[in-house]
Each structure stands twice: as C-alpha cells, then as structure tokens.
C-alpha cells in the first residue's frame, strides 16, 4: 500500500475562519505551564510591542491539526490512520498569532514516499488571515507504520 506520487502538490480548500480568542491563548499557554504575561495580559503584550496577547510558537497546531486531517480523510490518500504517528513538525512564522486574528488554514500535500514498509506523508498547512496576510506555515510528517 503505497501513496500515489500523483498526490504531491494537491491543495485543499481553505478552512472556515478560526477566530483567535484571548482566553484560548491563555488556555494553551497554561497547558505548556507558561505564565509569560505576553500570553495573558493585554497591557504586558502592548508594552512588549504587540497589538494584543500573542500565542506560544506551537499554538498554530490547534488549527493546523484539523486542517491536515482533511488531507488524511481524502479518499485518494490511502493511509491507515490507526497506524499513523507524528514523525516531524515544523513551523515558519511570518508574524506571531495574536488574539483577534481571523485565520484560515489551507492544506497542501508536499511529499509522499515509502520507506521500510512505512508510508510517509508530508502536509503543509499555510495559515493566513482571512484577508490573505501570511501568518505561518506548519509542515507535518505523518508516518503510517508498516505491518509487523
């Protein structure tokens, strides 16, 4: 069961708008044990030069994981999700995500390959504001481990 190389470059429609809330940023920061006030306190964030509270650098996963799920759910993508592990993750930030952002996530299949009986799928999710301002790109390598 190998992934079809013809899938490389396939893009999917942008997600629904994800509106970033201050409480969500605070919740995500707390889940990482961070009490950095730029995540929690608007005045502290402004004093540090941000227009509103900013998200931790891995916050985008809250949107991009479900966007990558759209790829895995594509019937042409023959990947046994019950055997999938997260192999690699990369973020490139054009600017920090902040409260008030209205974001859309657009997934693309960047690479497919087989290695040692495992199927490897690389997805890139580009996150922009709904007006098209680039915010970040999240690249994920998913590995479906071969049987035995």
């Amino acid at each position: 069961m190998a992934l079809d190389a013809g899938l490389v470059g396939r893009s999917y429609p942008p997600s629904a708008v994800y509106e970033v809330g201050r409480v969500k940023i605070a919740e995500f920061a707390a889940a990482l044990g961070s009490s950095d006030p730029v995540h929690l306190d608007v005045e502290a964030a402004r004093a540090a030069g941000h227009p509103d509270v900013v998200a931790p650098p891995t916050f985008a996963i809250a949107l991009t994981l479900s966007a990558a799920g759209v790829v895995v759910a594509d019937p042409d993508v023959d990947l046994d999700y019950s055997r999938v592990v997260h192999g690699e993750q990369r973020f490139v930030h054009h600017r920090p995500i902040r409260a008030g952002d209205r974001l859309v996530a657009t997934p693309t299949i960047e690479a497919v390959r087989s290695m040692g009986g495992s199927d490897l799928l690389t997805t890139r999710v580009d996150v922009t504001t709904e007006d098209g301002e680039p915010v970040c790109s999240a690249t994920s390598l998913l590995v479906a481990r071969g049987e035995g």
Partner: peptide, 30 residues
C-alpha cells in the same frame, strides 16, 4: 503528546529569548 514536548522545548527557548514572538522557525523530529 509529541506537540506538548515540542511546546515545552519551545517555551525554554522563548523564556530565554524573552519573547515568544522571537521564534521565527521551529522544527523537531519526534
């Protein structure tokens, strides 16, 4: 969660840099 481990390591970097917005690229292999 691998992403929790990645997030904690990212926190170590942003706490050092003094600003979470300072991390412009960040990647790991799990």
């Amino acid at each position: 969660h691998g992403m929790l481990t990645m997030g904690l390591a990212g926190r170590a970097v942003s706490d050092w840099a003094g600003d979470p917005a300072a991390l412009v690229e960040y990647q790991v292999r799990f």
